[in-house]
Design a protein around this nucleic acid. Structure first.
Lengths: 225, 225
DNA sequence: TTATTTATAATAGTAATACTATCTTATAAA
DNA sequence: TTTATAAGATAGTATTACTATTATAAATAA
């Protein structure tokens, strides 16, 4: 028997559930490939339709517009990622070891997860690095937030915040430190590869260095208290 | 005599220098207002032309497209901001006091600078918070970087990195810490106002708390070594 | 088995966006 | 006075971002 990982998505993100049909899964699969390849700005439903071999109108039956698709993909990623964290920190007692593991997971290149058929997590991880912020850096962030579009991201942040407090119960900024770790794991990666002089890893381009930087940053803050 | 602050901009950012004509200055001034008001996605040269009372084609004589205008505005902002830093940390000897001042400047609401006629720095600061990352989170980041579009941002990062090393000469990640401070001063502000559960300042919504968080983060890291 | 729902394909069409081109007029420098 | 130069006026195109309609194929219920 083949295991399958199903993620329950917010219904307001789509018009028709893409998980429940071939075309829907194709939209996700090829959508990830195209956004990865061309970037979100150059990505259109027309190109996606051509890529899949369907029509533009077909895509619109699943997603209202490309912004919703991006939000869907990032929400999916963070849900999947929280599952990864639970899975990989399952039996760890020591919150410090736990937090280090979380940082490592955040800053490490993701490999395709065989449990999720049509989603290429490796490409999706790159999309979340390069395009993820565009999901919330908009004028509609307030409405989108009311509709709970960012719940997976916020849940992850809360989980990491809790671990931080376990490490250091008197630390004053667990949630801000959590969002800082998440964002910086990705931004330092983007900078390292694209604007290297904004980092100290431009020469080596090794993600291990990002992990060291984040560990140093986080545990200096937590040790103090 | 009235003092005037002139910022020398990268020539590759525009087709015609907007500083050198009324229309050009109008493009900058009203561009800032419109992007602030509608967000970068909804912003078009057509709307800008109507707002100014000129034609679309008129705008295109100054900027190749709206992305270039955004890059221009962010580059302008960081150049102006580096000047602010130099001005406000001029006579400070102690690098720790200096770095604290930099953090405060980064995380504090900006007021309109009277020395710069047609640029509203207060609005521009909000644009840099909400839209700034979109200047480099693109597929063309490599080419844009070759053309030195991000030099002001990188220069600022270098300046802050130098102060960090003055505080703590053995610290291993001065540039990454510098870009982290810059990005987080803005992201924590955006989160506080739009996705408050990602921060610890959702209730108070006071930028003073962001400053405290960043100071704690930075000086924990630097004290250690 | 037929009837009916449902998903998708095919096609058409619209308003807005992102430009380019051309021609004329106003202005100011040579 | 000539001649650059900037700006206004107008037109036009390809692409984007959709909506609507109709036909067909496949799955499901009666």
């Amino acid at each position: 028997m083949k295991l399958q990982l199903q993620i329950k998505m917010n219904e307001a993100l789509f018009i028709r559930n893409p998980e429940q049909s071939e075309l829907g899964k194709n939209i996700i699969q090829h959508g990830i490939q195209l956004i990865y390849k061309n970037g979100f700005e150059a990505f259109t439903f027309k190109k996606l339709a051509e890529d899949i071999g369907t029509t533009e109108a077909g895509i619109y039956r699943y997603f209202e517009n490309k912004h919703k698709l991006l939000v869907y993909l990032t929400a999916w990623y963070w849900s999947w990622f929280e599952f990864q964290i639970n899975y990989h920190t399952n039996n760890i007692e020591d919150p410090i070891v736990k937090l280090k593991r979380v940082i490592k997971l955040l800053a490490t290149t993701v490999e395709d997860d065989e449990l999720t058929g049509y989603v290429n997590e490796s490409l999706l991880h790159q999309i979340v690095i390069s395009e993820g912020s565009k999901a919330y850096l908009t004028k509609q962030v307030g409405e989108d937030n009311k509709l709970q579009f960012f719940k997976p991201y916020k849940d992850l942040c809360a989980v990491i915040g809790t671990i931080i407090l376990e490490c250091s119960p008197k630390y004053l900024y667990p949630k801000s430190l959590a969002s800082t770790i998440i964002e910086m794991a990705h931004f330092q990666n983007f900078f390292m590869n694209n604007l290297p002089s904004l980092t100290d890893f431009g020469n080596s381009k090794e993600e291990g260095e990002i992990i060291s930087f984040l560990n140093d940053l986080v545990f200096s803050s937590l040790k103090k208290t």
